[in-house]
Every structure is written in C-alpha cells, then in structure tokens.
Design a protein around this nucleic acid. Structure first.
Lengths: 205, 205
DNA sequence: CACACTAATGGCACTCGTGGTCATAAATCC
DNA sequence: GGATTTATGACCACGAGTGCCATTAGTGTG
C-alpha cells in the first residue's frame, strides 16, 4: 500500500547495481536521529553517513519524513489479509479489533526496533503530522473491510467511523505503551485491549 | 490555546501601526488558494496580494499551513468553557458529545466561511498532516475535562481514548458532511450525532 | 515643533527539503 | 569489445522558514 517508493525490485540483474539499500539508509538515519534529533539531522548528513549522494536518498524514500516509516508500506497488505481472515460471523467490531491486535503482534522485522521507531514517529511533531497520510491508508483498509462485512460502501459513515475509531484506539494504546518505561511488545497488545475496553467503559459512563 | 501567533494585542497605541491584519491576510490567501490551489500558492504571492512584505506574514502566522486555520486558536478556550458548562451529573460521554456538538454550532465568524475552510483543510494533504498538531490540543482539552469528571489524570488511558475518539467522530462527521454537495451548518450537527450513533451501533452498544 | 521612544515593517542572506535534468558509472547480454 | 540497461550523483532551481537589522510611522514629552 501507499505509493511509497516503488518497490525497487529489479526484474533482472542487469544494469548498475544499487549502491545502498533501504536498510542501510534507515540504519544511518536512525543513528543520526538518535544523536542529534530528527529536525537537526540534514539529508546531507544522512547521505554522507550512508555513503551515497543526497540525490540518491530520494530514490529510496519519497521524503525525509518517510524514512522512519520504513517498511510500513508492505505491512498494509498483510493487514488486509488479517482482516479478511477473521470469521464472517463474528460481530464486526470484534473481527476488526482482533485483526488490529494481530497486526501489531509482529510489528516489523525491526532494525531499528519497533518501539524506537514508534517513539520517534509519535514524539516528533513533523512526523506526527506526516503520519496522518499513512494512517489514512490504514483507515481505508478497515473501512473497506467493514463495508464488505456490513454491505455498505467504504465511504459510508459507519465504515469511516470504524476506521477512525480503530485508529484512535491504536494511537491511544501506542502513546500509553510508550509512556511506560519498560514495556515489551506483548504489553502493547494488552494495552490495545485495554484501550478498547476503555472506550466501551467511557461510552457507558 | 496553541502557541499560535501571539495574540498581537497592543497594550498601548504606541509604535508603528500594523500594516495588515489576520483577516486581510486570510482573505488574500483564500482568494489565491481558490484560484491556484494551496500548494501552488507561494507566500510571495500571498504577501503581494495582501500588500505586505513576505517577512511580515510570519509575524501573523507561524507558517503557511497555519493560515487556513485562522482563528481556531481562540475557539479552543470557548470549547473549554462549553465542556465546563455541561452538567456534572450527565453521563460523561453525553456531556462531551454535547459540548462537541455545541462547539460546532457557530463554527467561526467565517470569512472565508467555515465550510470552505474545512474543505480546504480536509482535502489538502499538507494541511491534513499539519492539522494533527491542532487536533492534539483539542484532544487535550477533552482529556482534561474527562479526567476532571472521572477523577483520573489527563494522561490516563480513558481520558486519552475519549479525546481520540471524540476527534474520530468529529472528523468522520466533517468528511461525510463535506461529501454532501449542499449541506448547511445545521446538517453538520446532525451528522455529528449520526457519527456518534454509528459508533454505538458499530460497537453493539 | 523637535526630539526621544516604541513597535511593526520589510529587505537581505542563509539553510534546508524537494524535484528536474542529464552525463556517467557499472553491471549484463550478444 | 560493444550495445544495452539501470542506478548514481552532480548541478541547478524553487519555495518555506529564520535570524538580523535598518527603516518607518506612530506616541509622548519638553
């Protein structure tokens, strides 16, 4: 999903070989982000650290803001599959919730690790802002699944609300999880459950 | 609320008078946005249209992205008041929901009008992204009120979820409202109610 | 009225992200 | 070896954003 940088999959082994990789760029970038912070890390610095030209970075990532998201693109397809796997006779919100939880079980094949990545994304203003565009695609995937389950259109109100609310739950959970000094990946899943329970209790308060 | 551009309220009438105003800048900007679109409108063009220097724009708005939001800052205080006004014996989610609806009743003292403003904000990628920073403050106001009503801390999970979910409802409603070709301000309030009802039905409550 | 004072203006220079163009490098295929 | 293919990286241009500072246009005082 996402346009992202177009899956630079070489069909053949012809032509000049790549001078770097997404992984190498991310590693270089995260190193510098950790040292100086996101805003004060220039693309020139990342290019130098990665040993490539600055112009080349833009062939691997659409923008500086896209670097921290790394592999997220590919994961959306996985998310779509997880949603499709949930039984059709489940209550819709249960099916969606389960898929959301599963989606966060093996967050990424990290490097840098999931938590640090999410911490950066959720605490850096520029990235918080930029991420909305990613979230929109994520919400769309949910809206489409809810529409399919309920016989509605993805643009109808309920599927849209479901997408927005699922995101709301997830973001609440991530923020809470990040606020806990030493929580592991498993704890994240519990917090997502708690957030959903919190929503239900809020609506009954 | 928001740091925003610091309420340029002159204590005395001394010193050189302002060469322009927020209203004048917004009017110039919206005119150009309508003509060429947001992205292709440069700050130079806005400055020229408003008859001021480019540098001066930054004394009225922190960034180009902040221009469409206009007066939103001040409205947050109003929102806080609306929340405080809701009776303490109401179910929490009802109190919050009512305040949210009221908040959107007289959206702005428009010019340019509310709907056009929101259409721009919600359909322009740069602005969609930038707006999360505004939303965060809005959510904070809700979290604080929910915390007060429930005896929790604003950073606790339920108040946070309440903020996120209220935003989710509002955004769903706005998007749906904007998708209707000829809906008025009153219709927006109904859509907000519908979105909340949609959430409850989605959750089988 | 002239002079100090105050506050906003706007020009200049600079950094940084982003995008277009294009010559060049480094592989494979014949 | 030469044609072909593909990625690279240099050069250039534009626009947003920011610090600096001389200038402007008011008010208040003697």
């Amino acid at each position: 999903m996402t346009e992202g940088q177009a899956e630079r999959v070489r069909s053949s082994a012809r032509g000049r070989p790549e001078a770097t990789s997404h992984a190498a760029i991310e590693q270089a970038a995260f190193t510098l982000f950790a040292e100086r912070g996101f805003a004060r890390t220039t693309l020139d610095a990342i290019a130098e650290e990665a040993g490539v030209g600055r112009r080349t970075l833009f062939r691997y990532y659409q923008s500086k803001n896209d670097i921290p998201w790394g592999q997220f693109d590919r994961t959306l397809d996985h998310f779509r599959d997880l949603l499709a796997e949930q039984a059709d006779d489940l209550p819709v919100h249960v099916a969606i919730h389960r898929a959301v939880v599963e989606f966060n079980r093996f967050p990424t094949d990290a490097h840098p690790p999931h938590r640090e990545r999410m911490r950066l994304i959720l605490t850096t203003p520029e990235l918080q802002a930029h991420s909305v565009l990613r979230y929109a695609e994520w919400r769309r995937v949910i809206a489409e699944d809810v529409a399919r389950r309920t016989g509605a259109e993805p643009d109808d109100l309920v599927p849209q609300v479901a997408g927005h609310v699922s995101l709301a739950i997830s973001l609440s959970a991530y923020e809470h999880w990040l606020a806990q000094p030493d929580a592991g990946d498993g704890d994240l899943l519990e917090v997502i459950d708690s957030a959903m329970a919190g929503l239900r209790s809020y609506l009954n308060l």
